[in-house]
């Protein structure tokens, strides 16, 4: 008799499974989880903390907050950040002071670990939400984060 009960039990479990998929089939219109990516660029919004790339925000006076302390460069596990610095005259005090010449960021080396942003004492760098990083030339992934002729915001000290 177990021969027949096996068959009926088997068919029952198969039908149970088909009911699950069948339910999804009928609700397929609203249940689809597909993101139609390039089309939904307009409404696609990344979370605030999303780690897309490291950026250095500048204010309207073209000023940033990077003092060139190089803590991020030391914290980086991969050598992603290179700071080329210089000594310049500080207008306020008239003393010689360290300032950044170029803040070089190699996106191609970056593992998005966030240690640089974590250690930055002046919050000069932060996460950008851009995630479309494909380029035709590898050199385009090496970026200088401080804008040309930008200077340090007054009042930012290390």
């Amino acid at each position: 008799m177990s021969y027949f009960s096996n068959i009926f039990y088997g068919i029952k479990t198969l039908l149970t499974g088909m009911r699950v998929t069948g339910k999804y089939f009928l609700n397929s219109r609203k249940g689809a989880i597909t993101q139609q990516y390039p089309d939904n660029r307009g409404i696609l919004k990344m979370f605030d903390r999303f780690r897309g790339e490291v950026i250095m925000p500048h204010d309207e006076n073209n000023e940033h907050a990077c003092t060139g302390c190089q803590k991020c460069e030391i914290a980086c596990p991969n050598g992603t950040i290179e700071i080329i610095w210089d000594r310049g005259l500080d207008e306020a005090t008239g003393k010689k002071k360290k300032k950044i010449d170029q803040f070089v960021y190699h996106l191609s080396l970056c593992t998005m670990c966030g240690l640089c942003i974590d250690v930055c004492p002046t919050d000069a760098i932060e996460w950008g939400q851009n995630f479309e990083n494909s380029v035709y030339d590898r050199t385009a992934l090496t970026r200088v984060l401080n804008k040309p002729d930008s200077k340090i915001r007054p009042g930012v000290e290390d």
Binding site: F47, D48, R49, T111, M112, C113, G114, D118, W127
Partner: peptide
Amino acid sequence: FEETCGARLTMNYNVPGGLMWDIH
């Protein structure tokens, strides 16, 4: 995860001593 840690897979949310940020 993405909302709290910023990444979906390689989260790196822990640091020695606690968490990188507070929860969202």
